[in-house]
Design a protein around this nucleic acid. Structure first.
Length: 119
DNA sequence: ACGGTGACACCAG
DNA sequence: TCTGGTGCCACCG
């Protein structure tokens, strides 16, 4: 097993499950939404060790701050992730990056644009 | 308790 | 913009 109670990893999975189809979020973004703005690496570790017991976790929608695929290794990792994202309509530029303005997910409680926050 | 690892982020230069 | 160095966090023998 990889977790016992509500481990950090478990919370990562729950949040990533909420990332909408065709949208992406950064490791640091996930960490921040969980209240741990400096735990980006922890998020990466959690997704790398995603157990088979955790279905419905769109791990491929999590990329690094530069809008790039951050998976290492030759085996079906980087390629598969990009494949899955493109299949959802996410487009990569010539440098292999995603535009945050267009596909970035602001979080489950993100305010609708046009909302006035303060004068 | 300790040191090492990793699908990260940030800050100079 | 890119690159290298540094900081941080969760987790594993």
């Amino acid at each position: 097993m990889v977790e016992m109670s509500r481990s950090f990893a478990q919370r990562v999975y729950e949040l990533v499950r909420q990332v909408p189809y065709g949208r992406v979020v950064s490791y640091g973004g996930v960490a921040a939404m969980l209240g741990h703005p400096r735990a980006a690496r922890g998020v990466g570790w959690a997704l790398r060790n995603l157990p088979d017991d955790e279905p419905q976790v769109p791990w491929w929608r999590v990329i690094n701050r530069n809008g790039e695929i951050s998976i290492k290794g030759p085996f079906p990792g980087p390629t598969l992730q990009r494949e899955l994202l493109e299949r959802e309509g996410v487009r990569f530029d010539a440098r292999g990056r995603v535009d945050w303005r267009e596909y970035g997910w602001k979080g489950p409680e993100a305010p609708v644009d046009g909302t006035v926050v303060a004068p």
